[in-house]
């Protein structure tokens, strides 16, 4: 009797904690979404803060597309993120395979090098890259962002891919060799289909990394028709006048693709995250 009562209390406490964490996540997002649906007059009303839109409106969203060229921002972000994602996926398949299936001289150094690149502050690389890119005429092109996002996300993705490869038994490959497959064929026809979820997870990592980045975008791009979503929206934060309604609408638009990707791929992303960062 005493035992079950104790257990019930424990469950209650656990439920309470879970509820608090959920509210902690949902409330700020809720606030963002309802702010984007309010009229400007309702948003900038210092006397009364409303907790749901008294006057629902889509004007912030129409303004975003009509006045601030949100479509172009979305297109730019998509172009950069998808190309980065695809390129990283391809490179990390090769790199991850090389690291998972071979032991070779310099492997430990290589892994250490990958780890160290993850610890270097981005801004330290951005400043000299700015000089280099401007010499090469890459400033103000989407290519500069592509290159930067590529190198920033690549090491982590290679390592993650490596642990996905390591989970596939080598005997599978051996069987393919015995049947007369070459390295490449067995990789493409046997192994990649098996680890398809891992590949998608790596693509999601790279995509989200590129989609969410702000700082390099503000530095490498300064023409408005090449702005990615965060960079374009940041330009709406003026010194004296901040268009909150439009900004919130833009923020909602920016979080939808990554949130959906994450929600659907949650299991594999979580697996990849733990595999890539720590390995016991």
């Amino acid at each position: 009797m005493k035992y079950t009562a104790k257990r019930r209390l424990g469950n209650l406490g656990r439920g309470l904690i879970l509820l608090i964490f959920m509210l902690l996540v949902i409330l700020p997002i809720y606030w963002m979404i309802i702010s984007s649906l309010k009229t400007n007059a309702e948003i900038i009303n210092a006397q009364q803060v409303t907790y749901y839109p008294h006057q629902m409106t889509g004007e912030n969203y129409t303004q975003l597309f009509k006045l601030y060229n949100y479509r172009q921002m979305l297109t730019n972000s998509l172009i950069v993120s998808i190309s980065t994602g695809l390129c990283i996926t391809l490179l990390s398949i090769f790199g991850g395979y090389g690291l998972a299936r071979y032991s070779f001289r310099g492997k430990d150094t290589m892994l250490l090098f990958f780890l160290v690149t993850q610890m270097i502050p981005g801004i330290l690389v951005i400043i000299p890259l700015y000089v280099i890119f401007s010499k090469l005429g890459l400033i103000n092109t989407r290519l500069s962002l592509f290159f930067f996002y590529l190198i920033v996300n690549l090491p982590f993705c290679v390592i993650t891919m490596r642990s996905f490869f390591e989970r596939i038994p080598y005997t599978l490959e051996e069987a393919a060799y015995v049947d007369g497959c070459s390295k490449m064929t067995s990789l493409v026809r046997i192994i990649l289909p098996v680890m398809f979820p891992g590949i998608v997870a790596v693509f999601v990592f790279a995509f989200i990394g590129a989609w969410n980045e702000l700082i390099a975008g503000t530095i490498f791009i300064n023409t408005s028709n090449l702005w990615t979503v965060p960079v374009g929206l940041k330009s709406l934060i003026g010194k004296y006048d901040v268009k909150w309604g439009v900004l919130m609408a833009g923020g909602v638009g920016a979080l939808i693709p990554t949130a959906f990707m994450f929600a659907f791929m949650q299991k594999f992303v979580v697996e990849g995250l733990t595999a890539g960062a720590v390995k016991e």
């Binding site: 996540v25 963002m32 989200i208 989609w211 969410n212 980045e213 702000l214 965060p230 929206l233 940041k234 923020g251 920016a254 979080l255 990554t258 949130a259 990707m261 994450f262 995250l273």
Partner: peptide, 8 residues
């Protein structure tokens, strides 16, 4: 929150 950008 892991998937959201620092900007948002």
């Amino acid at each position: 929150p892991w998937s959201l950008s620092a900007f948002v």
